[in-house]
Design a protein around this nucleic acid. Structure first.
Lengths: 262, 262
DNA sequence: GCTATTTTAGGAACACGTTCCGAAAGTAGC
DNA sequence: GCTACTTTCGGAACGTGTTCCTAAAATAGC
């Protein structure tokens, strides 16, 4: 939604801060404008493009409030008059990134449509390494641009086509969302260790020295755990999840497992 | 670290640096010991109990390296000779917490056993609010105490009892793990906003002003999204996931959906 | 008792996100 | 031109996790 384009509390009579870019163009500070008060020297678009420039040049770990301010030639704390906090900035950047992605063709089969949309969601976030920093911000989905909501819509529509109620559809989405977020976050942190430190080695061997009488299955896997855990099984698990969710939704009463409704 | 000075990789006669507690008891600095070098004034157990004391007294947000050091009466940087970093400390604390929990009776039915174990895992982590800080550290499962691995083992054994190969069992566990981690992390960040700030309000109304022609399902849900997303559906989703995973594992060939093996 | 060696202690410093608060730079009314 | 008022700017400061480097305290060999 566009409403969050303005970080402001939404008070002034003229709320149309909407036409992004504001007054100072990306290169021209421009002349005055109808508003009162000291004119801003930096626009939101300038900030965002400077952030992208910084990321492209130095890598995303180097994207720092202070460095970004320096890149813009302004004080560090001045940035906080344009963005709420760093999470805010990253959400803004992520939205811009997602908007650039091309939307895949959505299959007509509901199940396949969900898998396609969820995979697109997953791949988009997985390809944005610093997405992990903000994936869990409260109400993340609500912060997405309207152009990115087609993924959510695709999943909901798929659920609806399979006879789910809207409530069940939301539950389907949330379940998939949790699975996706978890996969990306765990994977993002696993990829951090590019340097084969001793911790990784100690961990790899840890499962191979387990008590086979206490944890036989784990012991049987032993040192193969690391290799098995490194495989990419997102899509496969997603298919299983969608199948299970639909089977559950189409059975108003517990199918055959022990009843316990809650 | 020290090993590289020597030619041998695992040289020292006594490799068992693991016997926790070290030399200085929880309250007694104690006398000398066989080892050379300046004797430590603080033991690992002292650190851990001080950390718990701090958490119980001031809340876990106040658990800070500097405060912990002050509580112990030592320099802040000295702590880094006993723990690797803050994540390390939290993992240690989490292990101690999990060890104290009572293990539920595991049902004999494989599916129910998995649900029980995963729920225990979930509830344990959800009841430990600052678990969210470390849930995604690389190889987290490998850092668990052996007394906490019964949850992993229960899931693997359940999968094995349903005819899964060890490889499939690991995949079942990882899928459940991702789902669980995602649920906890998202939920942990949603609970952060105890204060009804304006962001939450703006978000709640956000979905109600959507273009019904572009995203009909979302628009139909509208403002109910927030309420629906607040429900606790972990267990229900888990059941569906386990069902789907087993159905998939027992079908060597794609059941009926479009083939695409990869 | 001396020196060498080994191990721990901890102050200084860094970069980070963020908040506070006074200064600066505009407009509006007179 | 002057005084209000409004809005933005940005330096100082706080608390954080963490690293560097030097001092201190023990043992081992002489």
């Amino acid at each position: 939604m566009n409403s969050k384009a303005e970080g402001r509390p939404v008070s002034p009579p003229r709320t149309a801060t909407r036409h992004d870019g504001g007054m100072p163009g990306p290169s021209a500070p421009l002349a005055s404008h109808g508003r009162t008060g000291r004119p801003p020297v930096t626009s939101r678009t300038q900030i965002l493009s400077a952030a992208r420039r910084l990321i492209d040049r130095d890598g995303w770990e180097k994207l720092t409030i202070r460095r970004l301010a320096a890149e813009l030639g302004i004080g560090a704390t001045t940035l906080y008059h344009h963005i709420q906090n760093k999470e805010d900035l990253l959400v803004l950047l992520l939205n811009h990134y997602i908007d650039q992605l091309e939307r895949p063709d959505l299959p007509s089969d509901p199940q396949e449509r969900i898998v396609t949309a969820a995979t697109a969601m997953h791949d988009a976030l997985a390809g944005w390494p610093w997405a992990a920093e903000i994936l869990t911000v409260d109400g993340f989905v609500g912060l997405l641009d309207e152009t990115a909501l087609w993924m959510v819509e695709a999943i909901l529509s798929g659920a609806a086509d399979r006879g789910c109620t809207p409530e069940q559809g939301v539950e389907v989405f949330r379940s998939i969302w949790y699975y996706t977020v978890g996969e990306i976050l765990v994977r993002a942190h696993s990829d951090d260790r590019q340097d084969g430190d001793e911790r990784a080695l100690a961990r790899e061997t840890s499962f191979s020295s387990l008590d086979a009488s206490q944890v036989p299955c784990l012991a049987a896997i032993g040192s193969r755990w690391a290799a098995l855990a490194a495989r990419d099984t997102y899509r496969q698990g997603l298919r299983a999840f969608v199948d299970g969710l639909f089977e559950q939704a189409s059975a108003p009463y517990p199918t055959r497992r022990s009843a316990s409704p809650r």
